[in-house]
Design a protein around this nucleic acid. Sequence first.
DNA 1: ATCCTCCGTGTAATCGATTCCACGAGGAGG
DNA 2: CCTCCTCGTGGAATCGATTACACGGAGGAT
Lengths: 338, 338
Amino acid sequence: MPAIKDVAQRAGVSVATVSRVLNQHPSVRADTRERVLAAVADLGYRPNAVARSLRTDQTRALGLVISDVLNPFFTELARSVEDAARDLGYSVVIGNADERPELQDHHVRTLMDRRIDGLLISPTDGGSPMMLDAARTGTPMVFVDRWIEDESLASVPVVRTDGRDAIRDLVAHLHALGHRRLAIIAGPAATTTGRERVDAFRAALREFGLTLDDGHIGQGDFQADSGRRVTARFLDLPRPPDAIFAADNLMALGAMDEIRARGLRVPGDIALAAFDDIPWFVHTDPPITAIAQPTGELGHAAVRALVDLVEGRPAESVTLSARLVTRRSCGEPEGSKP
Amino acid sequence: MPAIKDVAQRAGVSVATVSRVLNQHPSVRADTRERVLAAVADLGYRPNAVARSLRTDQTRALGLVISDVLNPFFTELARSVEDAARDLGYSVVIGNADERPELQDHHVRTLMDRRIDGLLISPTDGGSPMMLDAARTGTPMVFVDRWIEDESLASVPVVRTDGRDAIRDLVAHLHALGHRRLAIIAGPAATTTGRERVDAFRAALREFGLTLDDGHIGQGDFQADSGRRVTARFLDLPRPPDAIFAADNLMALGAMDEIRARGLRVPGDIALAAFDDIPWFVHTDPPITAIAQPTGELGHAAVRALVDLVEGRPAESVTLSARLVTRRSCGEPEGSKP
DNA sequence: ATCCTCCGTGTAATCGATTCCACGAGGAGG
DNA sequence: CCTCCTCGTGGAATCGATTACACGGAGGAT
């Protein structure tokens, strides 16, 4: 693999001149430029990004640590992040934390070791040591989707979706269809989205004169299995809920598994709704009512904020809003009753 | 961010000694080692991977270029690749080609510029310039899932799934349920998996005395939209097929969309099956019969082969086999008829 | 006592780029 | 004709690690 000195030699110039040509520095005579470019083409030379990074102290790479790649919400997020970053001339290195704090820490550490220019992170837990460290040492950092409530992290911008209104709409929808005993499969209490969705759900219930039983809050971990387990607990109750709201799409999948395994039917026996909409919800039996986040915009906004930080501009937090997409899993839509 | 010389200074030794401690070189006196380790801890020093890579000419990073992150098959693959790589002490940098050759090329180029140690690639097309270049210049490289049939790439190991038998099983299943006019939504002809699945399908049909009409082969591109389009064409035929086999799960999703949009029913009006199984297929209406690849093993085997290459050992191609998972989208299972 | 070995450590070259500074040539202005 | 700029270019320092080689001291062999 040819290095810059090979190009210099072949073009009969110094490495400095080659470097200037490569970085479109103006003070190179046109014919010299030609010669250098010709040598570059002949040798198939490509600058070594590792060496360049060492010298310039920037890698033009961003780190993205997400909680679970297998969750369609996060893969869509990852995709939009990569798109936005590429447009701005950055690469993205993805780390999958699998909802495990120690894995999250591993990835943050590896990314920092590789000296990525900035970190986009959707924390799995209450804040791992490496992450606090990264924030403290001034690594540009942006939280996406979830964030950490810690005063030492107060300056880290948060790009997220506020599901409050959509959740209220969902509760209204359920209420209108006659459901009164509503339950929620919550995310981990350590995550902000975990808590927030429960809070919003509880507040909305209150608005409709309902209360959220302690027995109707199940602790999940955003994985399908936990949705199954919690749903089993709900269904074993003497008076089971008549509607279940899963705080993410994987737990909704688990819930469906369990409901189906017991020979019950959605929405006849029990209604089901989920946070996060995915293409498959159209084709499930029945199609699932869900709260959709503007995932693409979320990714773009997050990258914009992070790159602002990286390039020395101030960055702001962004809050987008989610919307309810009603389908048939909570009962027949209002207008369509016979 | 402290560098090795800061550690050296604080411990009162030279940078060489610090480096030796960090790389567990044996010839360091125990008490010196202690002092160095203490300094490392005090400063929170972490070695700069960029500098290390420049010097050692290895990054301990692997590149993975996949055709489409949004396809659950590939995200599962990516996840298993990352798992396997991490176990062996490597990081994975993912590039999403989005089934677009020019994007694939962009990622290969970027990864090569960053001097990744090896490249895992699932090519979208017949072989882009950068890829041929990479192979020619001796970059360790392994094809996964798909590959390129080019003599200059003959030495690149291929880790893949052979779906031949499973496709035969599928055709047998369809035949047993009375379907005779079978159609296939194929992948791009430029991809090996695209062609291979059609070939296997055609061969299996012949075995059952059926033929594959030209009108019953639709050219898709592994994306949902193309599944929709091709299905529309099938259904507009004067004598539409009575069973459709989609060569991947996204095109199956598109096919379902189209079938549903026309008010037709699966499997009553038309049977549907897909290559690649995903968790949601259990919950669609109806549950979809699919051919499942051992995705986890695929990823692990691919990483093993690539790391062998990277570390100077010979690597071998691996072919795993897929299996048919019958559900209800082709008709009621044999045993369960009344 | 002398010489050799080995052990632990330091000095300095090196990887491949970027960039500051210096330098020579040529043109403009006095 | 001399001085001063400007322009284009080259030399060399630098980023942060690794590692070949050198070196001084301790201990063993003779």
